[in-house]
């Protein structure tokens, strides 16, 4: 078990190092000089130019040798310093991210967990049941093929704009004060429904299809046939099949995280939801590279941590990993 986790942990640490290196290297080795781009973007007066250039040169430490820059980058990272935002100078990037994260997590966690659970249950029910299967399967493929933002756009158009049932934009009623009150909480929830629903629905299809295929595979296996031959009730056989089919779905959850995070970012943009996606968009529009890089690092760390949690859950759920057998080659 420890070997299994240690191996995983090694990959994650390696991944983190690679990601940080990419984050460090891209501004430095990309064609074009980001400092010039930044300065030309925000410079107001000719003499402000020089001052800004020197500020950014110092911020990037561009006058030092490359290896020194690399070490500095790591050291700043471990001090929690991701630079300062340019569009909202001088707010630190970490503050901006900290403000946006609750909204993104509030969308992501429920939609990931609920779509996973509901998708698995629906998929398991649909497997080998003609009528249900014929409706779940095409719908599932349709949903997985839908771009996240488009479903969001459709929901916003039909339920928000045309019918007027839900608000079209923002994380809460802009006339309210941000405070701990029932009114504010209700407004939060009201604005949360549509972005959540679109994320939930797109992710649902994939899980249902995956589970359906796994159940069919399990029902064809020897143990299922044996149980049937013994005259075990259908329900019992399906219960065993479900538990076995669950394992690859747990691994799949870890693999899908990156895609769902991407989906959350664009969904937030559709609904002008004040999470990381909205932050990234304004970062891109204002060429605020520190913000983009900060969000990048934050997503990497978040996804790696989530992967680790999934691995630990996997060890708890699959006894084979505990006794040192390889189990599923996750």
């Amino acid at each position: 078990m420890l070997r299994y986790l240690a191996r995983k942990l090694f990959v994650y640490i390696l991944t983190f190092i690679v990601a940080v290196t990419i984050d460090w290297a891209i501004p430095r080795f990309m064609p074009g000089n980001p400092v010039d781009a930044l300065v030309s973007r925000i410079a107001l007066m000719p003499d402000a130019n020089a001052a800004l250039t020197s500020y950014f040169m110092a911020a990037f430490n561009l006058d030092q040798p490359l290896w020194q820059q690399y070490l500095n980058f790591w050291s700043a990272l471990f001090h929690g310093d991701l630079g300062r935002s340019i569009m909202l100078f001088p707010t630190p990037v970490t503050t901006l991210i900290g403000r946006a994260v609750p909204y993104t997590l509030g969308l992501l966690l429920p939609s990931i967990l609920l779509s996973w659970y509901v998708g698995n249950v629906v998929g398991a029910l649909a497997a080998r049941r003609k009528l249900l299967d014929n409706s779940v399967l095409p719908l599932g493929y349709l949903l997985t093929a839908t771009p996240y933002m488009w479903l969001g756009i459709l929901l916003a158009w039909v339920l928000g704009s045309t019918l007027g049932w839900f608000p079209l934009a923002f994380g809460y009623d802009q006339s309210l004060k941000v405070e701990w009150s029932w009114q504010f909480f209700g407004s939060l929830l009201y604005h949360w429904v549509l972005p959540f629903a679109s994320l939930f629905m797109v992710a649902l299809g994939g899980w249902a299809i995956g589970m359906r295929n796994m159940i069919i595979y399990e029902l064809e296996s020897d143990y299922a046939n044996y149980l049937m031959a013994l005259g075990a009730p259908q329900r019992l056989v399906r219960k065993y099949a479900f538990r076995n089919a669950m394992l690859p779905q747990i691994t799949g959850l870890a693999l899908q995280l990156g895609a769902v995070v991407g989906g959350a970012l664009v969904t937030e943009i559709v609904f002008s939801y004040p999470g990381l996606g909205w932050l990234v968009l304004s970062g891109i529009q204002n060429q605020d590279y520190f913000v983009i890089q900060g969000v990048f690092l934050f997503i990497i760390v978040g996804v790696l941590l989530a992967n680790l949690i999934v691995d630990i859950v996997y060890v708890i759920v699959d006894p084979r990993t505990r006794v040192g057998l390889q189990g599923d080659a996750a």
């Binding site: 990156g258 970012l265 983009i292 990048f296 996804v303």
Partner: peptide, 11 residues
């Protein structure tokens, strides 16, 4: 494991 979308974003 790397969320590729985030990498594409930065690049």
């Amino acid at each position: 494991v790397i969320p590729t979308f985030a990498v594409l974003l930065v690049v």
